Amino acid sequence: MPKAQETLLEIDLNALKHNFDHLKSRLNSNTKFMAVVKAFAYGSDACEIANYLQKLEVEYFAVAFVHEGVQLRNAGITKPILVLHPQAANFKILIDNCLEPNLYNAKILNQFIAVASAENQTNYPVHIKFNTGLNRLGFSETDVDYLSTTVKKTTAITVKSIFSHLAASEDLNEKEFTLNQIAKFKRIADSITKALNYKPLLHICNTSGILNYPEAHFDMVRSGIGLYGFGNSAKENKNFKPIGTLKTIISQIHTIQKGDSVGYNRAYTTDSVIKSATLPIGHADGIGRQYGKGKGYVIINNQKAPILGNVCMDMIMVNVTDIDCEEGDEVIVFGPNATAEALAETANTISYELITGISQRVKRLFVGQ
């Protein structure tokens, strides 16, 4: 691949296909696959990623908010799209774009029924979320009777799926908790299916659920982080390929004398003569200030270059004293080898936060396929 000449996020579609194929290999042939492409497809490019996955015959997509689903429709996505956290103010737009809402409490349920009825909808597909322990969004188990009674009173909607979200599926120390969530979900699904007299799709597994709890795959699974190359454990990471490589270049190299400082607030002061390299990437690009003062690093000519001082809005400075490099050389911020997960750990955070935070001003370059 050509060397970077500017800051860019290189996205490998071959790696995406590898990850999708691996996840599919863990499923029964009749289990549907929902690709989660919220947050710009975890910091990459939702429209490009979704169009590619649509060609691979993904059955469903999921986004967080209505405007994300509208963007996918405008980009040519025709498969069903679940909106995980819709707001009532956007219900008409949602219907106009054939998006499918997650309805998670009595208020949002009744608001959607009212809008769907006013729009003369019949059997509009909706998804009902139950809270089984994450305590974020969802009806409770005690709401089953109310929910089924309310749904049966209207012809405006039909329940396409019933789902929940596992709280700690990646942590096998929490296996008992997860199994209790799954058992609770089964009870809820049985109760509401009997009450409705038809069977919606059932889904509870996220990426780690797919990998660790095959007995809970049900009718469909949802994968986000796995598609983008992370298995949430050292063992599973070996089966995935990170799709994104964040690259930049060296703009300038300085020789910093002993006792001199680098960057804003003089956050780093040398105790010997060093060489620093300035890179055109900063916290406006998604490399937060938490990576400053030596916590983070980049890779230059296969060597780690620690970040010096505070991260600037558009630049970072790194220590290249012991690295043979020149102005214009390529720099790897993260990629398949120096992973986003490893970089995130230096700032006590997770790969999700790092990759989803990459600014939209960073150029995207698609490779493979």
Rank of each mutant, 00 (worst) to 15 (best):
S261C: 12
I243P: 08
N74L: 13
S208Y: 02
I128T: 13
E174T: 00
N302I: 12
Y198D: 02
T321C: 11
G259E: 07
F61Y: 12
S261F: 08
I316F: 09
V151R: 05
I49L: 08
G335Y: 02
T150C: 04
L53H: 09
K79V: 01
S117Y: 00
E57A: 09
E57M: 05
P200F: 03
M313D: 10
G209M: 06
L82F: 13
V367F: 04
I323V: 03
Y124D: 01
Y352Q: 11
M220E: 00
H283G: 04
F366Y: 12
V58M: 10
L343T: 05
L109I: 13
S140I: 12
A347C: 12
N120I: 13
T155A: 10
P80K: 12
K24D: 00
A277Q: 12
M34H: 11
G288L: 06
S251A: 00
C98W: 02
T150P: 03
G259H: 06
S272D: 13
R364G: 08
L147H: 00
A116H: 04
Q290W: 01
D190P: 02
V36K: 05
F40P: 03
H217V: 14
Y60G: 02
L9Q: 00
N131K: 04
E119S: 15
Y146M: 07
G335Q: 06
Y60L: 13
Y291P: 03
F130T: 00
T154I: 06
T321F: 12
I316D: 03
G259R: 11
P242D: 05
L23I: 15
G69C: 05
M220V: 00
G357D: 08
S25C: 05
R222Q: 07
K363Q: 03
L94S: 06
H18T: 14
V63R: 06
E6L: 03
G368E: 06
I113M: 00
I93Y: 05
K247W: 03
A284C: 06
D322H: 11
